[in-house]
């Protein structure tokens, strides 16, 4: 009896030591360390991407997603021939270009002002920075609602009230097509300026003080110092900043959905909204898939520029 127990114990010990050896062996293989992340990446990013491509070459609908046939490039031919698609592309281009320019200029002015203010020990530098960043931490959907409240189109709406006090007329901020597009641009600038401000401020800290001092001693005006010393040194950060905010803005969805819902008509329907409505309101999964692929191509193209630039800078 005793010997049998002993044998069982030696077996357990053997198994345990084999298990622990196996465990320390697998620790030497990077594969096992990466496995969980790879699984998540595969299921929730790679697979949906492949699925988007597959959808885009079918005539799948949401009403019966199992009943479809492959139409290959017909979906793409159809969207590239549809005036809707080009209309939404135009709206997206205006929205993105205006937002990027405004965020960049606003971010640069704020970064410069705060850099100067901190160096001079002026009051309110930190408070200003926190104020700008507060807008950035608010969820996009709430930003849309906040601006909807600001832009109420009667004399009780606060912006319209201020305009009235200044002697103007009530403005149809959200029910006039062009004004609505402008409103989304303003709301998006409100949201995104903080990001540019922080990146450019970090960039400004890299500019050596000696260079600016030397330029000052040589009699350069502040504008000349900015134009000929700061700006050239800021170029890499500026470039990365432009690429990143362009990518973020192209994919804007929640803020516009809450603010205008793409309206009035389709005046503020950017590509992301167009894609979403195509799938969940008009049930055309094929077309929605194709728009997703077009957006993906734009995203990847912008990212390649970004990565190429980063790789040029240093090894990773």
């Amino acid at each position: 009896m005793a010997t049998e127990t002993d044998r069982r114990w030696t077996n357990v010990a053997a198994v345990r030591s084999r298990a622990s050896r196996w465990f320390s062996d697998i620790q030497e293989h990077p594969f096992f360390w990466i496995l969980p992340a790879a699984l998540f990446l595969g299921v929730f990013l790679l697979y949906p991407l492949v699925e988007a491509f597959r959808m885009s070459v079918t005539n799948m609908t949401l009403l019966d997603p199992t009943d479809y046939s492959y139409v290959w490039l017909d979906t793409y031919v159809r969207i590239f021939e549809s005036p809707d698609f080009w209309g939404m592309t135009r709206v997206t281009l205006i929205f993105v270009t205006a937002s990027v320019v405004l965020q960049l200029v606003g971010g640069m002015i704020l970064a410069q002002a705060i850099d100067y203010g901190v160096n001079r020990g002026l009051h309110g530098s930190i408070f200003t920075r926190i104020s700008v960043l507060s807008a950035w931490v608010i969820p996009g959907i709430v930003i849309g609602i906040v601006w909807k409240i600001m832009l109420i189109e009667t004399r009780y709406g606060v912006i319209n009230y201020i305009i009235l006090q200044l002697g103007g007329d009530v403005v149809s901020f959200l029910s006039d097509g062009q004004m609505a597009l402008l409103s989304t641009i303003v709301a998006n600038t409100w949201r995104g300026t903080a990001f540019s401000m922080i990146m450019l401020y970090a960039g400004l800290q890299q500019v050596p003080d000696q260079l600016k001092d030397a330029a000052r001693i040589d009699g350069a005006s502040p504008w000349q110092r900015f134009r000929h010393v700061t700006l050239p040194l800021l170029k890499p950060v500026l470039f990365i900043n432009i690429v990143l905010i362009t990518i973020y803005t192209i994919n804007t969805f929640d803020m516009i959905l809450a603010l205008t819902g793409g309206g009035p008509g389709r005046a503020t329907e950017v590509l992301a909204l167009y894609m979403y409505f195509e799938a969940f309101e008009r049930f055309n999964l094929g077309t929605a898939g194709a728009i997703a692929v077009v957006m993906l191509v734009v995203n990847v193209f912008m990212t390649m520029i970004y990565i190429k630039y980063l790789l040029g800078e240093d090894e990773f």
Partner: peptide, 13 residues
């Protein structure tokens, strides 16, 4: 590359 792809692009699939 994956980091830069917005969730919006893959919401339908």
């Amino acid at each position: 590359l994956f980091q830069m792809i917005s969730p919006v692009v893959i919401v339908i699939p």
